[in-house]
Write a protein that binds this DNA or RNA. Structure first.
Length: 582
RNA sequence: GCGUCCAUAGCUCAGCUGGAUAGAGCGCCGGACUUCGAAUCCGUAGGUCGCAGGUUCGAAUCCUGCUGGGCGUACCA
């Protein structure tokens, strides 16, 4: 479609120019003012060129201009042009376009572009704490980070996905302390509890205990100091429990098809961050406050001051993020670093970017905070105190079981083979689609009940459509002999349903491009739904294997195959597993 | 208070750099399985695009103000 669209833009520009000359107007820059649109209804054509922008220059009503432009277009066009009131609408040469499209869809390159070729982009996401397991908020973060990365790669960028493990601080010591007191040497192996959940249980236990014992908080602080001093016993416990958590979280990543090219650890970067702050102090970028803390003056960007290093010399979050950013640029000299982090940290990143700039790092301008909104529940916010936090593993398990039940209840168990594994893949589709449908910057409401529904505008719906195409193609393969020597004729596809599907398929590259530009996977998600829906309509309206015209069968099967290709490619971008059977 | 983001159907969300009658899904009501997989399809009902101005031939979209909400404004992360 792109090819013909470009062609028409060109033709239209010439025509408008010609019409202007005929009117005796001086040649103005009309071509740059031409816009292409899509008519609201299919019977109105495929492309629409509004004539409003020229009314003033022409001193003529748009419908009259439209008339003149159509005349100026002349004959011998790839399709037909008609006036529709103030618009010039174009009906494309469908057969030629469909033939091109089907060829394009079969290519590995379809949907890919060189939009960002030559660019090195680092994407940071997930960044868990090592004192508890992942929750629903992380799942949104992971889904966005992973999907954005894949979209950027498809757009030609060299992408490095990185994770920052927040493994130090008082909150970490809290679960350690509770373990020391109440753990009795329990391990993930001895208890059968996944490591991150086991550690999380002790974090909860600490909070219960601290209500009864007001020395608890102070003890945790003491432990942090011991940790910073390198106390052997504390460090050993820290290493042990960190490993449990990270192993557990890694399992969740594996289950959700999330991966990283490189890990950073706060326990490493906070020290280098501290050095940077000291250097910055010497260079006069930071200053020592009366209270002994080292601060950055933010009056330049209309803010107050920010602590870079505490008065007791210990690090704050900002300290280590400075160190991390600098280390990263050394490891991978990026053209862009995208931090996928919640909107509640916007202030933090404003300060961080400013601090790096003041420190003289020219690449500070290449940092970008991809700020995403909160995930709330129908009852309101998730609150750990009220136990309303939705645990990532629990949710996945629940979704998987629901999907497996669905398979069994539909008597698909035998056809599917591994019911559990298929259920898991359906669960992932449901989850990722649900999370990515919404624009990242917006808050969203996660309705657990609704997310368990596999009907309507959902990930499983997309999978279902691709599974149907797959089984149809399989059947076609079995009967291939019947169609020997029959070649497709694209002019037989003249129904609305077929054309709608063609249009959906041809807009896939544009959807990917838009997602890459806006760093917004929902553009791809929406396009996938549009494609699946169009296919569904096509499948319903147009007999394929059931047609008694072999040419029609062969031609439509090609279109169905093209739809499957596009769905598969799109699935990859939003992390939805493809299933040939479900 | 200041900063920032959001407000579209009963609910959850789309709506590309302004363009023709604002779209989905869920839910409601009603249809379609002896036929390529009914996890499907089709139809009905449902909107003053928060309010008020402005820019424009033309505004859900851009600008200003207002109202309501989220988030932030830590020597927390």
């Amino acid at each position: 479609m792109d090819k013909q669209k470009k062609q028409w833009l060109e033709l239209m520009a010439q025509a408008v120019d010609k019409a202007a000359q005929a009117k005796g107007l001086e040649s103005a820059d009309y071509t740059s003012r031409i816009v292409v649109e899509h008519p609201p209804r299919p019977e109105m054509g495929d492309l629409a060129f509004p004539m409003f922008p020229f009314a003033k220059d022409f001193k003529t009503a748009p419908p009259v201009i439209a008339q003149a432009v159509v005349e100026a277009l002349g004959a011998g066009l790839p399709g037909t042009a008609k006036t529709m009131g103030p618009y010039v609408n174009v009906f494309l040469d469908r057969a030629a376009l469909i033939e091109d499209l089907i060829k394009d869809c079969a290519s590995e390159e379809y949907g890919k572009s060189d939009l960002l070729s030559g660019q090195k982009i680092m994407v940071e996401f997930s960044c868990p704490n090592t004192n508890k397991p992942l929750h629903l908020g992380h799942l949104r973060n992971d889904a966005i980070g992973e999907s954005i990365s894949r979209i950027l790669i498809a757009s030609g960028a060299e992408v490095q996905k990185v994770n920052l493990i927040n493994n130090r601080g008082v909150h970490i010591c809290k679960s350690m302390l509770a373990y020391q007191r109440f753990g009795n040497g329990v391990t993930p192996e001895s208890s059968g509890i996944k490591g991150d959940h086991l550690v999380g249980d002790f974090y909860v236990k600490f909070n219960q205990w601290s209500k009864e014992d007001d020395t608890a908080e102070a003890q945790a602080q003491d432990m942090l100091i011991k940790w910073e001093e390198g106390d052997k016993e504390v460090v050993a416990l820290w290493e042990l429990m960190n490993k449990w958590t990270i192993d557990g979280i890694s399992e969740t990543y594996k289950n959700t098809n999330i991966s990283f090219d490189r890990y950073y650890y706060e326990s490493n970067t906070y020290l280098s961050g501290r050095d940077e702050v000291v250097k910055g102090l010497e260079a006069g970028v930071f200053y020592k406050d009366e209270d002994g803390s080292i601060r950055l003056d933010l009056s330049e960007i209309g803010m107050d001051t920010k602590v870079m290093l505490r008065s007791d010399g210990t690090s704050v979050y900002m300290t280590q993020d400075l160190g991390t950013a600098i280390a990263r640029h050394g490891d991978f000299p990026f053209d862009r670093l995208i931090y996928v982090v919640g909107a509640e940290q916007e202030y933090h990143f404003q300060v961080l970017f400013h601090a790096l700039k003041k420190l003289g790092y020219s690449w500070a301008d290449m940092l970008f905070h991809l700020s995403y909104g909160m995930v709330n529940l129908p009852e309101g916010k998730m609150k750990s105190r009220e136990g309303t936090v939705v645990d990532a593993d629990d949710l996945l398990k629940q979704l998987s079981e629901m999907a497996a039940d669905e398979i069994r209840s539909k008597d698909r168990a035998e056809a599917v083979g591994d019911v559990e594994e298929t259920g898991r893949k359906i669960a992932l589709a449901a989850l990722h689609y649900f999370l990515l449908q919404v624009s990242p910057y917006k808050d969203m409401i996660f309705n657990p009940k609704e997310s368990l529904s596999f009907n309507g505008n959902t990930g499983p719906y997309l999978q279902y459509m691709s599974a149907r195409i797959s089984s149809m193609l399989e059947k076609f393969e079995e009967r291939k002999g019947e169609f020997e020597g029959v070649s497709p004729d694209y002019s037989v596809m003249n129904s609305d349903a077929e054309w709608e599907l063609v249009k959906a398929l041809s807009s896939f590259p544009a959807a990917v491009r838009s997602a890459a530009n806006d760093l917004n996977p929902s553009a791809v998600a929406a396009h996938l739904y549009d494609t699946a829906k169009s296919f569904s309509r096509f499948y319903h309206d147009c007999p394929i294997l059931g047609s008694d015209d072999k040419v029609v069968t062969v031609t439509r099967i090609e279109l169905a195959g093209a739809a499957l290709q596009v769905l598969k490619k799109g699935f990859e971008l939003v992390n939805i597993p493809f299933l040939s059977k479900m």
